[in-house]
Amino acid sequence: MSAHSLPNRQPDASGHDPRQEYLRSLLVDAGLSQREAARRIGVSERMMRYYLADESADHRPAPYVVQFALEELARRHDVPDADNNVQD
């Protein structure tokens, strides 16, 4: 099954979890750096750093749309392509 054949998942903001620990785990699951994840979802590197910062003056809670985009990147990373290679 390719990432393109995954069933569409509808956003559901009731599961919003802006904690930096959760967002960081999504980056690990997606196999992406902060820089690459920011590029792929269309946010600046600076905003990604704010979202992932420890609870400090620099921390900003990530909006649900950022969480959803990172969840999708992580979900698609685990799906093998037609040649049974994991998607990057």
Rank of each mutant, 00 (worst) to 15 (best):
M47S: 14
A3M: 11
L23Y: 04
P7W: 06
I41V: 05
V79P: 12
D78A: 15
N84H: 12
L26T: 04
A74T: 03
R75G: 01
R46G: 11
M1L: 12
I41D: 05
A37I: 01
H77V: 02
P7C: 00
P18Y: 03
P7A: 10
S33F: 01
L32N: 03
D54S: 14
Y64W: 11
A30R: 02
P80T: 00
E71T: 06
G15T: 15
G15L: 14
R76S: 05
D81Y: 04
D88W: 12
H16T: 05
L6M: 15
H16Q: 01
D54Q: 10
E36Y: 10
L6N: 09
R75C: 01
E72P: 09
E55Y: 14
D88F: 12
A62N: 08
E71Y: 00
A62I: 09
A57N: 13
R9Y: 11
V43T: 03
Q20I: 07
V79T: 06
Q87F: 10
R49I: 09
D78K: 09
R19L: 07
E45K: 11
H59D: 10
E71M: 08
Q67F: 05
S44D: 02
L6C: 06
P7Y: 09
R40D: 00
V43H: 08
R46N: 14
F68K: 06
D88N: 14
D78S: 11
S25L: 13
S5I: 07
V65E: 10
R60C: 04
M48K: 06
V86T: 11
Q67E: 02
P63L: 04
Y50S: 15
N84T: 10
L23F: 01
A69R: 08
R60I: 11
I41E: 07
I41G: 10
L23S: 02
L27F: 03
R19Y: 09
V43I: 12
A69S: 05
Q87W: 10
N85T: 06
A3I: 08
A30F: 03
V79R: 08
A37H: 04
H4W: 14
E71F: 07
R35L: 11
L26Y: 02
P80A: 04
A82D: 10
S33M: 05
A82V: 04
R9V: 13
M1G: 15
H59G: 09
A57L: 10
V79G: 08
Y51H: 07
Y51V: 04
D81A: 01
S14T: 14
H16E: 00
A62S: 09
M48C: 03
A69T: 03
D17L: 12
P61M: 07
E45W: 09
R35H: 13
N8A: 15
L23A: 01
D12R: 09
V66K: 00
Q67N: 01
A38R: 02
L23R: 07
R9E: 10
A82S: 09
F68M: 03
G15D: 11
A53V: 01
S25I: 11
H4K: 15
S5G: 11
D58V: 12
M48N: 05
M48H: 02
M47F: 13
V86H: 15
Y64K: 07
S2H: 13
P63T: 09
N8F: 12
D29Y: 12
V86C: 14
R60W: 11
G31R: 11
A57I: 09
L32R: 06
S25K: 06
A53Y: 01
D17M: 13
R40M: 03
Y51M: 07
